[in-house]
């Protein structure tokens, strides 16, 4: 432990942390409290007045079948994105370790997709899989798949999951490569001498030692799937067909800024905040226990 720093001046320490506190207050607590206040207000149809309704907005939202559908969509979407993005990234990272020639080039190429903006990534995937002009959609149809994400909800979900995962793979790849490099080579060698084949070595030595990285990425990917995928969904499906790809964040936007039901939207964002806080708390509380650091 580093020794405690003692300031002779009583006011100076507060002045030093003031800018940080001000930023946090202005950009986090103030908007959050506004959302909380808004979630208990209801406006008249013309937006001329609003009245305080306590938890009525929450009751309304939580009994709305559309909202419950959105929760289910978000759960499927988040789990799929985290699983696909992390699984693929781990596979690629393990493969990249085995590349002997131009390993650096290979890694650099793997990282590029991360630099693509979400909306652009969404557009790329939209074009590639557009039922009428998409080149990959043509390939899918040629394979005998009745490809039409504009009508088929499951296909639309698969498309946004693919697009969202694709963007996150680079990020996960970077961390997995770093995590793999941090595992001492001698451990792998010792395991080989101990009679473990390559598969066995991966699952009994490498994977458990990667656990801290995997855990960190699980938290980051969940938060990503919850919040940062708005652009992709907006560009690819717009929440449709029907409400098949309408995630919680997308619904907040739709109800608040398209349908202008501000009270409902605010109540939803408060619920969303609670969900993410709870999720992260659970992950740290339970998953971290099974993680071995060092």
């Amino acid at each position: 432990m580093s020794p405690r720093v003692v300031f002779p001046n009583k006011i100076l320490p507060y002045l030093l942390v003031a800018p940080q506190l001000a930023i946090t207050l202005v950009f986090f607590y103030w908007p959050a409290s506004q959302a909380l206040r808004q979630s208990m207000l209801r406006e008249d149809p013309f937006g001329l007045s609003s009245k305080f309704v306590w938890f009525d907005n929450f009751k309304k939202v939580l009994s709305d079948p559309n909202y419950l559908n959105s929760i289910q969509v978000t759960a499927i979407f988040s789990i799929s994105v985290a699983a696909v993005a992390m699984g693929t990234a781990l596979l690629l990272a393990v493969m990249a370790e085995k590349v002997v020639r131009s390993r650096g080039l290979y890694r650099t190429l793997m990282i590029w997709p991360y630099a693509v903006a979400p909306a652009i990534a969404g557009m790329l995937w939209l074009f590639l899989f557009n039922p009428s002009i998409g080149s990959l959609a043509y390939g899918l149809r040629w394979l005998g798949i009745n490809w039409d994400p504009l009508l088929d909800g499951e296909q639309a979900m698969a498309l946004v999951v693919a697009a969202a995962s694709w963007k996150q793979i680079s990020y996960n790849f970077l961390f997995f490569v770093a995590g793999l490099q941090a595992i001492p080579k001698t451990l792998i060698e010792a395991a080989a001498i101990d009679g473990a084949g390559e598969n066995k070595r991966f699952w009994t030595i490498v994977f458990p030692l990667l656990a801290p990285t995997t855990f960190f990425l699980l938290v980051v990917n969940t938060v990503y799937a919850f919040f940062d995928t708005f652009g992709i969904i907006h560009a690819v499906t717009g929440g449709g067909p029907g409400k098949a790809t309408e995630t919680l964040v997308y619904k907040v936007y739709n109800d608040g800024f398209v349908n202008l039901i501000l009270g409902d939207s605010a109540a939803q964002s408060v619920i969303l905040m609670v969900i993410v806080i709870a999720l992260t708390a659970v992950q740290f509380r339970y998953v971290e226990k099974k993680v071995h650091y060092g």
Partner: peptide, 9 residues
């Protein structure tokens, strides 16, 4: 091994 290479987990 020189660094023992014990499986830490």
């Amino acid at each position: 091994f020189q660094n023992y290479a014990l499986y830490p987990h």
